[in-house]
Simulated assay, not measured.
Amino acid sequence: MNHQQKPQEGNLTNLKEFVLLGFSDVPDLQWVLFGLLIAMYCFILLGNGTIVLITNVDSALQTPMYFFLGNFSFLEICYVSITLPRMVFNLGTQRRTISFIACATQMCCILILGATECFLLAVMAYDRYVAICNPLHYPLVMNQKVCSQLVIGSWISGIPIQIGQTSHIFSLSFCGSNQINHFFCDIPPILHLACGDIFINEMMVFLGAFLFVLFPFLLIVFSYSKIIFTVLKLSSTKSRAKAFSTCSSHLAVVILFFGSGMITYFRSNSSHSGETDKVLSLFYTVVTPMFNPMVYSLRNKDVTIALRKFLCKQFVKI
């Protein structure tokens, strides 16, 4: 990390609001983006909401794997609702301002939910590891109490540290422009506006990224290395295919979410590009929540069957 102290400029501003530039650099596409984002948000709500619903009402899906999936889908709804409605509002009204408090709140929520998602993905990988590598002990190890504790731990693990990190960032002095070259209040573009020495803040970002991104990712890598080693020892080709099939959907989400997240947060502040950050952020804030219901419903027979049963019951009632 190449640390550079940002110079103190003459006018230190007691900011009351920021301006989210978003995609203002493509004015001809504003209404196209407006319609596209509304469609994507509706799809995310419908897709993930359906998974939450059927994993709770279908008795065949009352297993740890689908308990985690239901929580993950609910998390995706919360996560995307922090950023997408604001993006749609800004595009529709062309009012791009966001108050200082609202910006800090948005960042804090994104960091907490992002940490939750990282740990929940690690928990889901651990669940697959136990199911495949220790199938006889699976009901004992992944009992209802343990599953609940793992989910609760995932939801609350990042709260104190991420609140502290957000408070520390927004206690900095800001000078010059109040324009954030992003579509939400993320750490890199906010630090770009800060004055003075931001070395401690950069170190906190790296530490937070290690604890809440790299550490869960390493747990996932460890789980999948054990899974692959175990699956390759299976004599039946059908058994190997079935084992890999149960993991492929989760692995696709992991690669998409962690890949874009690590590139964003493991770079130094000086190497960040506004346009690159916006593209990468779209992957872990919008594309992953939209991708989740597709890979888990279209590629998962249990979810597909449960969805058909649920829809049939609704049509019979009508």
Rank of each mutant, 00 (worst) to 15 (best):
N48M: 07
G10H: 15
T105M: 14
K301I: 11
M40N: 04
I180E: 03
L37W: 07
P293S: 08
Q8G: 07
F258H: 04
H192I: 08
L282T: 06
L232G: 13
C147Q: 05
S73I: 08
G274C: 14
C147D: 11
D28N: 13
H192D: 15
F215S: 05
V32T: 15
C118M: 08
P216S: 01
C185H: 02
F258S: 00
P85D: 08
Y66G: 01
F23V: 06
V213R: 15
L207Y: 11
L120C: 06
G176C: 08
T63N: 06
A194H: 02
S73Y: 00
T55E: 01
P7N: 10
F68V: 11
T13N: 12
F18Y: 14
L111I: 04
S167R: 13
D277K: 12
F72A: 04
G49I: 01
I112H: 13
F183D: 05
C103H: 00
A104V: 05
F210Q: 08
G259E: 01
K226T: 14
S273C: 09
K6I: 08
L256E: 02
L113C: 05
V32Q: 15
N2K: 13
V205T: 12
R86M: 15
D28T: 12
C195R: 05
M262E: 02
I169S: 00
A209Y: 02
I220W: 09
S223V: 00
G35M: 08
L172C: 06
M1H: 10
F291H: 04
I38R: 09
